[in-house]
């Protein structure tokens, strides 16, 4: 082991020990500390309001398939947080992703570099055939994940990632497979514009950007949760297109 590595090890170890120490320290009275593991008291947190879906209105019990016209109709609380309560953050987040994709495009400078095709031999028959079989299934799975994002674990990001994975696999397996730049751009910008458009519509009709302007329906039903599914669809297309774009750029560079 080299000397420098040793120093790095010692320093990180010291750092880690100091940080870990914070978890075992006995708090003084009145001092705010971390909870022990598994002892998170969410009753006193904002989380409780999200769970009750009552940041603005009074506290009501939310019951599966019964409660109607809630603040946010999504059965998945995380989705509520991501695509409703904090959807402005999410807009920023996909902007970051977009910027990363754009940055990769700039860094790799595809326009100027000689476009070398993925020069490997044809991939193995098993992979090729498997992917041929898997590709539509993956697309389907992805679609399911983002369409049911407000009901079950999942959502736009996850669904988009699955879709992008499908395209990645396709690109890996099939040398002749090529996605047109223009189609990616088209999908991505349409998705982005519709996200912003939904927000602007909320701004115009309800007076606040990204405010829910549709009926939220009954908790647990597919057609519920107001604009959340719409936003998630937009996000899914955008993320899927961006990730595909990134993968495509990396492969082609």
């Amino acid at each position: 082991m080299k000397f420098r590595n040793l120093i790095a090890l010692v320093i990180t170890a010291a750092f880690a020990l100091i940080i870990l120490q914070a978890f075992t320290i006995t708090p003084a009275a009145g001092e705010i500390t971390l909870n022990e593991f598994g002892k998170a008291d969410i009753n006193n947190r904002t989380a409780q309001l999200y769970l009750n879906k009552s940041v603005n209105t009074d506290n009501k019990k939310v019951i599966y398939q019964e409660s109607k016209n809630l603040e946010s109709g999504s059965a998945n609380i995380v989705t509520s947080v991501v695509a409703n309560y904090r959807s402005f953050d999410t807009l920023g987040e996909i902007t970051v992703l977009f910027l990363a994709a754009a940055g990769i495009g700039v860094v790799l400078n595809l326009e100027n570099s000689k476009k070398k095709k993925f020069a490997a031999d044809d991939s193995s028959l098993i992979l090729n055939t498997g992917i041929k079989l898997l590709f539509p299934l993956l697309l389907l799975a992805g679609t399911y994940i983002f369409v049911y994002g407000h009901l079950s674990p999942g959502g736009g990001f996850q669904g988009g990632a699955v879709i992008a994975t499908a395209f990645l696999l396709k690109m890996l397996s099939d040398n002749k497979f090529e996605i047109k730049e223009i189609s990616i751009t088209l999908v991505e910008s349409t998705a982005g514009i519709s996200f912003v458009g939904l927000g602007l519509y909320g701004l115009v009709t309800r007076g606040s950007f990204l405010e829910n302007f549709m009926a939220t329906g009954t908790v647990g039903q597919l057609f519920s949760a107001g604009i959340i599914p719409l936003i998630y669809i937009a996000i899914a297309f955008k993320v899927g297109a961006e990730l595909t774009n990134i993968v495509k750029n990396l492969i082609e560079a």
Binding site: R4, A8, I11, T12, A14, F15, I18, I19, Q21
Partner: peptide
């Protein structure tokens, strides 16, 4: 990076 980590360590140690 090592120097900045070292600085953090020192600061954290001092604070602790």
């Amino acid at each position: 990076a090592l120097y900045s980590v070292l600085l953090f360590v020192i600061l954290a140690a001092v604070g602790w």
